[in-house]
Design a protein around this nucleic acid. Sequence first.
DNA 1: ACTTGACACCTAGCATTGCAAAGTGTAGGT
DNA 2: ACCTACACTTTGCAATGCTAGGTGTCAAGT
Lengths: 112, 112
Amino acid sequence: MRGQALKGHLDLLLLTILADGPKHGYAVIEQLRLASDDVFDLPEGTVYPALHRLQRAGYLSSSWSEVQGRRRRTYTLTNKGTAALGEQRQSWTEFSHAVGRVLQSRPWPSTP
Amino acid sequence: MRGQALKGHLDLLLLTILADGPKHGYAVIEQLRLASDDVFDLPEGTVYPALHRLQRAGYLSSSWSEVQGRRRRTYTLTNKGTAALGEQRQSWTEFSHAVGRVLQSRPWPSTP
DNA sequence: ACTTGACACCTAGCATTGCAAAGTGTAGGT
DNA sequence: ACCTACACTTTGCAATGCTAGGTGTCAAGT
């Protein structure tokens, strides 16, 4: 995939993953990779700051725990986050359909 | 639509519009609006710099003309631009499908 | 005559954000 | 001892959409 392609759509992905249930950052990365069939294999420097941002926005809450000597920060979707997810899903649908319409606005690639 | 959502996908849209035939900037904006059913009604400050960027990248060539007292800069897709369009279409497909997979990776919104 | 709006182009500068790159520390295997 | 996976963090860069201003033409309304 082209780099930076998920610009503006990362939040939707993260919120979606966390809608499945609370997860710590590393697990979010893993789940996103699995759910996307390895298409979204995001670096930590992308995901962790994004999670912080989403928490600052009130979409996530987090709590620390220690599991087998490793500290974990587990994120949970808030009500506000759930609402935001709904909106962003709708946005995505509208956006992707619009792109689809533009791409189909003329025949391709069978036009010589 | 949410602002900034087309971050990283604007080039694809512009190249697609211009694949239909040479157009000047203002017409590109118009066509994009029409083709997207008013979803992509982009400000000039978005489109003009993007066209310049695409030309700098070698994807477009341009020529000036004057039509009824108004100067126009008409952009034409280059071979390189056509190739880039092909790649970006493929990227988009992969990306949007991956997002779709993630969104469907768990039931929604019918899970309580 | 004046104003408004569509046409048609331009640029500076801001804000956002994905990501590379570096760092810290634990646990477990070879 | 070393490496890999786990787990989290931060700094700083680069890209880019968009706001907000600007210039100028032409047609239509008032």
